[in-house]
Amino acid sequence: MLNKASTPAEKIVKVLGYIFMAVCLIVALFPIVWVIMSSFKSNKEIMANGLALPTSFAFTGYQEALKIAPILKFFGNSVIITCCSTCINVLSLAMAGYIFAKKRFRGREVLYAILSISLMIPMTSVLHPVYLIINKLGLYDTKAALVLVYSALSMPMSLMILRSTFEGIPTSLEEAAYVDGAGFVRTFFQIMLPCAKGGLASAAVLAFLDGWNEFTFALLLTSSDKARTLPLALSYFSSQFSFNYTAMFAAITIAVIPSIVLFAIFQEQVVSSMTAGSVKG
């Protein structure tokens, strides 16, 4: 209401703001739109003019892409691995977060500080030790290896989010459960966990995205199709795709669309988890 009375300078700022917004949006979306558009063009059309719109709307590229590379198999691996790691991550850190939030014991703060160190370590620095440990455990080239590593990846964020979630739940609720005769485990699973839904969802979204998009450890710890994940599929088969650009663009589109759809649906959740994770950090 007050900004009706804006000065010429402020009007210019406003117009510049709109231009800036438009440029950012175009920069962010152009590469993806270009890839999706190209996936409907024939090889000839792609080579003739990289910017032209497709002349027909054919899905042959998608059929060929699925034939050339076992994308669906990799997709399945990704779903299994990421779902398992997300569940393990959220459950184990919910248990720990609950203890840190509600129980007093000797060394509590020290242990919490030690666990928080994980936030400081760039995971690329420990590629070799992790590889060594996975090998020693006999897990090389198994889905379990990636489940284990991905469960730990977003550990610091999950711990911070879940600890503060449980701190926000009144202790009286817990005491009431004890008075009613519920044991420790039942109190946690039937009373505390349902109250922590918001924090659990935030942690789960972050853990899922971390695992779903991870590339480095997937590359390092797998050697066959039985455990490879979707992020590897594209680069791994890029040689098979050479000279069939339509299929390659289709494959990229297949890999990208699920994340975009998930984000569109869970947008508010993603934004609030990111904020929750970073404020505590």
Binding site: A28, S235, S259
Partner: peptide
């Protein structure tokens, strides 16, 4: 819209830019 390139995997972004 501006968030979308950050939500899709880095390897997909890399493949897109390779092209």
């Amino acid at each position: 819209g501006y968030m979308i390139p950050n939500i899709i995997s880095q390897s997909a972004i890399a493949m897109i830019f390779l092209n």
